[in-house]
């Protein structure tokens, strides 16, 4: 250390130290660079913000919740991947940002549980989605008019009504997170429902009833999801499946009640009540997910039929 001597060189005279100024000539004029720079810094800022957002509240940071990706998809690989999924401009991907590798397992689980809870709440209290449903129907109405689809509705009149409604009460876009789908709801509710039906049926054909109800329910849900796809709109196959599965929740309750109540007449009243609840919840949820306005009845009718059949099985076992 002590042997080190600073070299005193005048940079202006030494050839070895002939340093060029650290400057790269711009391709364009200076103003675009500044613009780019500012753009970049704002992008960095956004990224930072988003990252913090992800850290802070992992659940709600899904890009799908945001209207920007809702209306102008950036890179939607699902279009090229799966023909079943491609009828959607609504992005339906699970989680698209943030660092999930080194987060605790509990956070990962909690994110899914909270999402399931949100979707369940939209079934338990369907009125919470009604405003969003209105907005979505409004958008679909406009989309259908622009693409020239005849949905049997007088466009002008309905549009006026909707715009008036929207101006009176602005929507709360935090509800959009309920648009996401998963298959936990269908799995859990169909499983519980068919288990209870199997338990209620006579000992000789318990397993037959369980397996038939389980298989038939999945099959009809899939058929109905395809049916909703075929009727048009922006809903995806799995979104329809998820909606139907979550809206099965009232029927699960009614089946649990029918374990304790043996008298068919009371069961029948409960059946009417809970099936209409389930159908109402499914209607609102399907409206939000993007079924064309003039075809909501056609989309919801099979769902109601299946719920009526399943509920009736509860009554008569």
């Amino acid at each position: 250390m002590s042997q080190w001597k600073p070299v005193n060189v005048d940079p202006n005279h030494a050839d070895d130290f002939d340093l060029e100024p650290d400057f790269i000539e711009p391709d364009d004029a200076t103003t675009p660079i500044n613009k780019n720079k500012s753009q970049y810094s704002s992008a960095q800022q956004q990224q930072q913000n988003q990252y913090q957002l992800n850290q802070g509240q992992g659940q709600s940071s899904n890009s799908f919740f945001n209207f920007s990706s809702f209306t102008t998809p950036n890179i939607d690989l699902s279009n090229s991947l799966n023909p079943i999924l491609n009828n959607e401009n609504v992005k339906e991907r699970k989680f698209s940002g943030g660092d999930t590798l080194d987060e605790p397992v509990w956070d990962t689980l909690k994110r899914d549980l909270v999402a399931i809870g949100h979707r369940l709440f939209s079934v338990v209290w369907p009125a919470s989605l009604s405003k969003l449903a209105k907005v979505q129907q409004h958008n679909l109405l406009i989309a259908a008019r622009n693409s020239g689809i005849n949905i049997g509705i007088n466009y002008d009149q309905i549009e006026q009504d909707l715009e008036q409604d929207l101006q009176n009460q602005p929507i709360d876009d935090s509800n959009l997170k309920k648009l996401d789908w998963d298959l936990w709801g269908p799995l859990i509710f169909i499983l519980i429902f068919s288990l209870i039906l199997g338990y209620l049926s006579p000992k000789t054909n318990t397993s037959q009833v369980f397996s038939s109800v389980f298989a038939l329910t999945w099959l009809t849900f899939a058929v109905i999801a395809i049916n909703i796809q075929l009727l048009g709109g922006t809903i995806s196959f799995f979104s329809a499946l998820s909606t139907q599965g979550y809206a099965l929740f009232p029927l699960v309750i009614s089946s649990i009640i029918s374990i304790f109540i043996k008298w068919s007449f009371i069961r029948f009243i409960i059946y009417l009540l809970f099936v209409s609840w389930a159908i109402y919840a499914a209607t609102i949820n399907l409206k939000v997910s993007g079924v064309l306005p003039g075809r909501i009845f056609l989309a919801i009718y099979p769902v109601g039929l299946v719920y009526a059949t399943l509920g009736w099985l509860c009554v008569i076992t």
């Binding site: 992008a43 960095q44 956004q46 990224q47 913000n49 988003q50 990252y51 957002l53 992800n54 890009s63 945001n66 209207f67 920007s68 990706s69 950036n74 890179i75 940002g97 943030g98 660092d99 590798l101 907005v135 929207l166 101006q167 602005p170 929507i171 876009d173």
Partner: peptide, 23 residues
């Protein structure tokens, strides 16, 4: 910009100006 963190495409502005303007 790319460090140890995963790269997040800056497609979503987090500021309030991006929120849907329904009023």
């Amino acid at each position: 910009n790319i460090g140890t963190k995963a790269y997040i495409p800056p497609d979503i502005p987090a500021d309030d100006s991006s929120l849907p303007n329904v009023s």
